[in-house]
Every structure is written in structure tokens, then in C-alpha cells.
């Protein structure tokens, strides 16, 4: 049965399918078509801007490659585009940083929207393009920035929002996410910035905590997949 599973995987996901012997090709195509359509539909509907700016042909090529090389690993339906966006980050970032960042930003919105109520919904994205300002009405896309921007993507009142934060605050959050205490995090930042304003950063952090975006005592929920540089 293991061999049959592999044969079915090849039939469904290989660009050049390995057809099963003795079974009408049109029936084999039904499975291929239904599975592909289902996966394409959820990815396109949850990464609409990336799809819009990449164009249907290129975007579908990317999905086909992803399905052939890797495919979904998780059971949650809404995670399919998140997994695909993570693959895009690894595979198209060199030639298409903007679209990879846009896909990541859209995926982080899904993560924030669906984050469990027991955790903070906040995700951190670090981008070289102002992806948060892109809409499908844009006729041109933003140019690459000299320095990255740091966006907290979070859910409030069932609506996904974003907040741009300063680089030092983002670095502080990253240290906290690694499990360091506030003092340890500030100490380690002091080594990078001679003029670090500890009181200012602490106040910024308290402000975010007060708004329910981060928790100082607990460092979750900035899962590592949400943080990249």
C-alpha cells in the first residue's frame, strides 16, 4: 500500500504525471484536477494580492512546483497558504523579494486571524518593501527600501491590523521571543547600540503590552516561522 501511495502522489502532483497502468486516463485526471483545484482555490483566496501582482500564470507555476517538490504537510486547511508562503520565501526570494514578502505578509495575516484565543495573536514581519501599503488598486509596486521595516501583525476585535515598530523595539521583541528576560535583552542590545535608551525602549514595550500586542512575562506567541530577516 506504501507503493500505491507513492504512485498516487506521483500521479497527482508530478507535472509530468506517472499514469497508473490499466486505468482509464480520464478517470486518473479527475483526481488530479479535483485535488489541484481545491489547493489552488484556497491559496488564491487567502493570498489574493500576491496572486494579483504575480499574475495567474506565474502564480500557478509556483504552486505546481511547490506541490511537486513539497506540498502541504499540515492538516489545517487555512495553513495551506501559510505553508506555501513559507516555501515562496525560501524559493523565490532571490529573484522576487517583493512578492515573497507580500505572500509572507498575507500569510501572517491568516496566522493572526486564526491564532488561538489563549495566545496573543501578534506576528512580526520584517520587510524591505512597504507591503502593508499595497492594495489591488496599486498600479505600481513599492520600491525596495534601504532599511527594512518592522511590522507587528495582530488581531483586535476579530479584525487583523498591523503596526509599524522601530527596529530596536523589534530586536528587543526578538530577544524576548528567544526566552531572554527584559534585562538580558536590553543588555544584549546595549552591546549593539552604544546610545541605547533603555527607558524609552521599556516604555515602548510597556505600551505594546498595554495594548495586548505582546506579553512581557511570557514571550510567546512570536513563533519563529513568523520572524525572518
Amino acid at each position: 500500500m506504501q507503493e500505491l501511495e507513492q504512485a498516487l502522489r506521483d500521479l497527482v502532483f508530478k507535472r509530468d504525471p506517472a499514469w497508473l497502468v490499466g486505468i482509464a486516463k480520464e478517470r486518473q485526471l479527475v483526481y488530479r484536477r479535483l485535488i489541484h483545484n481545491n489547493l489552488y482555490d484556497v491559496i488564491i483566496s487567502l493570498l489574493p494580492l500576491t496572486y494579483h501582482f504575480a499574475g495567474a500564470e506565474k502564480f500557478r507555476q509556483w504552486i505546481a512546483t511547490w506541490l511537486e517538490e513539497q506540498g502541504p504537510k499540515q492538516r489545517m486547511y487555512w495553513m495551506i497558504p501559510v505553508e506555501f508562503a513559507a516555501w515562496l520565501m525560501e524559493n523565490i526570494v532571490s529573484e522576487n523579494l517583493l512578492l515573497a514578502e507580500l505572500a509572507h505578509f498575507e500569510a501572517m495575516q491568516q496566522c493572526a486571524e486564526n491564532a488561538p484565543n489563549t495566545h496573543l495573536s501578534c506576528k512580526l514581519g520584517i520587510y524591505y518593501h512597504s507591503v502593508h501599503l499595497i492594495s489591488d488598486e496599486n498600479s505600481t509596486l513599492p520600491l525596495k527600501l534601504e532599511r527594512p521595516i518592522f511590522l507587528l501583525i495582530y488581531r483586535a476585535d476579530e479584525t487583523v491590523r498591523w503596526l509599524e515598530i522601530e527596529p530596536q523595539v523589534a530586536q528587543l521583541l526578538a530577544k524576548l521571543a528567544e526566552g531572554a528576560s527584559l534585562k538580558e535583552s536590553l543588555d544584549s542590545l546595549s552591546e549593539l547600540y552604544a546610545d541605547l535608551d533603555r527607558a524609552y525602549l521599556t516604555a515602548q514595550l510597556a505600551g505594546l503590552s498595554h495594548r495586548g500586542l505582546v506579553s512581557i512575562s511570557e514571550t510567546h506567541p512570536r513563533d519563529e516561522s513568523a520572524v525572518y530577516s
Binding site: 500500500m1 506504501q2 500505491l4 501511495e5 507513492q6 498516487l8 502522489r9 497527482v12 502532483f13 483526481y31 479535483l34 485535488i35 481545491n38 489547493l39 484556497v42 506541490l67 513539497q70 506540498g71 502541504p72 504537510k73 499540515q74 492538516r75 486547511y77 495551506i80
Partner: peptide, 25 residues
């Protein structure tokens, strides 16, 4: 049915081979 194919979550329902081995499995 199958839902997972050799490491990939298909998010779909794929018929099983209809034999005794599959019944037992």
C-alpha cells in the same frame, strides 16, 4: 479513504484499494 499520500497532505479524499489487506489496515 486516503487523505495523505507519501508525505503530502492532499486535503482531499482518495479511494482505497478494495482488498483484505486494506480492510485489516
Amino acid at each position: 479513504c486516503y487523505t495523505h499520500l507519501a508525505g503530502v497532505e492532499t486535503h482531499d479524499l482518495i479511494a482505497l484499494p478494495l482488498h483484505e489487506g486494506a480492510v485489516r489496515r
